[in-house]
Design a protein around this nucleic acid. Structure first.
Lengths: 373, 373
DNA sequence: AACCACATTGAAATCGCTTTCATCGTTGAA
DNA sequence: TTCAACGATGAAAGCGATTTCAATGTGGTT
């Protein structure tokens, strides 16, 4: 039978309240009793029952974390940062993986509330509207992570800016025919990256025709779809993938097909996950401020929890700027291409696969010619 | 103010116990009262306070998971599998990341016990002895994951066998001069892989001299240390890294230095993490049965929790067999080398870096010549 | 009419802890 | 000597649930 505060008290010959006072230093004890209690605790190997304490205190010192998954490097990193920060601040992390299932996510949030968590860190996968609606009558403070939610506590990278940085980089290098590997646009973050990318491209008088975009769930598999883009005429000289994982998937096909990066084709990603630096050449990418995202989210939430009703911070929705990491996988376009006609149209020498551009040329004259300046 | 069972009872005009009966279907209610209660619950948006229930029931339906980190693909995968399985089984996961700190690990376990978790899944980073000792007087069921602990509930890959598989593969391909990139041997899993590797190699009359081993913490950085091995004479024709991450780190240096894999050098890893399949060529590796490890661990623990004192399963320590995944990064030795002399000693053509073998030849004559058959 | 069985409902104890506030010496000052 | 002040301790209430068991009402039997 587990030791309780009562059993300790009995052994020490004092009242339970005295033991409690000893534990919490909430009243001065004579040296003698203190010693007695101490010994009794040691003898029984007593540990306070936090469940009971929490019930009494109406505070659990625990925070629920709901996240689509933790195996993807990006989310994994975020989750790790948050757990660490929470532990430092004295909070226990209740981890919930939604596996991108809105139903599951919702029931997890409900469950966490039932468990009386002091707050919730949520990387939602549902539609924004739905989340907002169901969370309306929840009394627990919530901070949205990696999601932009106006008027709510939220913290997120400026994906739009990230998209622009990518576009500017590629355009500045002289690329005119650019392919896109993008996640589902229903994911807001992806949509914003694309949006930013397109917008900045326009400034250079460029665009990415529909045919030059491969869409799908953001994972390694999606990267493989790059083969579709490679068959296009003119062939893209640069690829922007909406995250690094996708870029790495594409990388594989590229190298297998005999392309040399960046000589034959430039490629860049988004996120800056750990392995990206370790590719050869290392992957150019738009880096998200992982630590800041996770760290700030926790701080925000903890402040919220500790503030109680009082003192609401000024800015609720924080947006962090990403940074461009120029590395080896992108290079200036060889012998400046003009007029939307790709030079160097031939496949690179050691090419194996990638069926050679069949006679079916795209009808659109100059599919990606510069827009009206 | 949050709704309690009492407030619901009052609104419904019944006693709290009746509401409880309604919630838990522990007594039959007349249709009328049931409806009343139901409406009151809906009206107040009442959700049971699991903290209070748990206190009363002396069961929290929560499991503590302590793991060195979740950002490494291997642990991340395991953690994800466990969380999923636990959620399915109705348990909340309390995640604790020890960050490879034994102190932290211990205090986390203690904390979890204080929180009255029903059980603990532990991937310990302390020394085995120390863990065993401090956990001796803990009353909560524990299952050790990815660690072999005789006489305790534990589940682990057969690392020794894994090492042997790797050695046999490389030896069979004809490699005679083999380099090792190994994690710290103080980590038992690593030690066992090495042990198995050495043993199997001996069967082929081979050995790996001390100079051909680079040691360090198992991460991307360690892989870079392969440069040390490349300067050896004779140069190794194959590399075994004790996990995939390390192999990938080495991969980078290798390719940067102009080596072609597997033409110029073979390399293999351990774990079979997701990206390994996506390298070009894909990485040969010894695959750990992730899902089985995580899944079985959860099942074992849940059984333990639910069995209570009764019925202890026969086998406490489960060992799972890894499988060899032969992929593209290993190949037969070109023109069989004999006598411990590496043929093809020259650097591959397009070599850039890797300072050429300076005149200082290793004194040991035939450092890795075949052992007595 | 008296009695009993059965179906509902609720009073009260309890889980393990915190916290208020009263109590009970002691002690120093008047 | 008396009293106020103080330091140390403990009795009891309460956090929000569950669960036992008694109480109540109903209807069917004899």
């Amino acid at each position: 039978m587990k030791a309780t505060i009562r059993s300790v008290a009995k052994l020490a010959g004092v009242a339970p309240s005295t033991v409690s006072h000893y534990l919490n230093q909430t009243a001065p004890l004579s040296a003698a009793t203190a010693k007695n209690v101490e010994q009794a605790i040691a003898a029984l190997n007593y540990r306070v029952n936090l469940g009971a304490r929490n019930l009494r205190l109406r505070k659990t010192n625990s925070i629920g974390v709901v996240i689509p998954n933790i195996t993807s490097p990006f989310f994994g990193e975020i989750a790790a940062v948050m757990e660490n920060k929470l532990w430092e601040r004295g909070f226990q992390t209740l981890l919930c993986i939604s596996e991108r299932s809105p139903e599951r996510e919702l029931s997890q949030v409900a469950h966490l509330v039932s468990r009386q968590v002091d707050g919730i860190l949520l990387v939602y996968c549902s539609q924004k509207s739905r989340v907002a609606e169901t969370l309306k009558n929840i009394s627990v403070p919530i901070v949205f992570v990696d999601r932009r939610v106006p008027d709510q506590y939220s913290i997120c990278t400026d994906n739009f800016l990230g998209g622009r940085l990518a576009a500017r980089h590629l355009a500045t290098l002289g690329h005119r025919v650019i392919g896109l590997l993008c996640g589902e646009p229903s994911v807001e973050n992806v949509a914003e990256r694309i949006e930013g990318f397109k917008l900045e491209l326009q400034r250079f008088g460029l665009e990415v025709p529909e045919a030059y975009r491969a869409k799908g769930r953001q994972d390694l598999q999606l990267g493989l779809r790059i083969t579709d883009l490679l068959q296009l005429e003119p062939r893209p000289t640069a690829i922007f993938a909406t995250n690094d994982i996708v870029a790495i998937g594409a990388w594989r096909k590229l190298v297998e097909s005999g392309f040399r990066i960046p000589r034959d084709i430039s490629i860049m990603g988004f996120d800056d996950i750990a392995i990206s630096r370790f590719l050869v050449p290392p992957l150019t990418t738009v880096a998200q401020p992982y630590r800041e995202i996770g760290g700030k989210a926790v701080e925000m939430l903890v402040d919220l929890v500790q503030a109680g009703e009082t003192a609401t911070p000024a800015e609720k929705s924080v947006i962090l700027a990403p940074t461009l990491k120029v590395r080896g996988s992108t290079a200036p376009l060889k012998k400046g291409g003009v007029d939307g006609k790709a030079i160097d149209g031939r496949l690179p020498e050691r090419t194996k696969a990638v069926s050679p551009p069949k006679s079916k040329r795209p009808t659109s004259k100059g599919a990606s010619r510069p827009l009206k300046s």
